[in-house]
Amino acid sequence: MLGRWPFTAEVKDDGSLTDIKVDEAHGQEPFPTERGPKDTVQVPKGMVTRVKATFDKPGMYMWHCHILEHEDHEMIRPLEVH
């Protein structure tokens, strides 16, 4: 995990976001328990969480949220690694 940054955005009627602005000046370093290899990170509301990942082989992977209602909002997405 590289860190977290607050963001603001306009919410459209359909729930999607537009005019997204990330506040690069007020980022947060990872907590000591978040440093090193992880397969899960917390993403607080109103924050962009940046991660760096390495893959040992190409293929299709998934990134997803563990909040069940987010499944309805496409928070489970494919990630293709070449």
Rank of each mutant, 00 (worst) to 15 (best):
M1W: 07
G36S: 05
V81L: 12
V41P: 07
G3W: 09
E71V: 05
V11T: 15
M62K: 10
F55T: 11
E80F: 14
D14W: 11
L2G: 00
V43L: 00
L68T: 02
E10A: 12
E10Q: 12
D39W: 07
I76W: 11
A9F: 06
F55M: 02
T33A: 02
G36M: 14
M47E: 15
G46D: 07
W5L: 02
F31P: 01
M60W: 04
P44K: 06
R35L: 12
E74V: 14
D72I: 00
V48S: 05
G36K: 10
P58T: 05
W5N: 01
M60L: 15
E80D: 11
L17T: 04
D14V: 09
W63N: 10
H26G: 00
V11Y: 15
V11H: 03
W63L: 14
P30E: 06
I20Y: 05
S16K: 14
V43E: 00
A9D: 09
M62L: 14
E71Y: 15
V41L: 10
G15C: 15
M1R: 01
Y61E: 13
P58D: 06
E24I: 11
W5D: 03
Y61K: 08
I20L: 15
V22A: 04
H26S: 12
P6H: 11
M60Y: 02
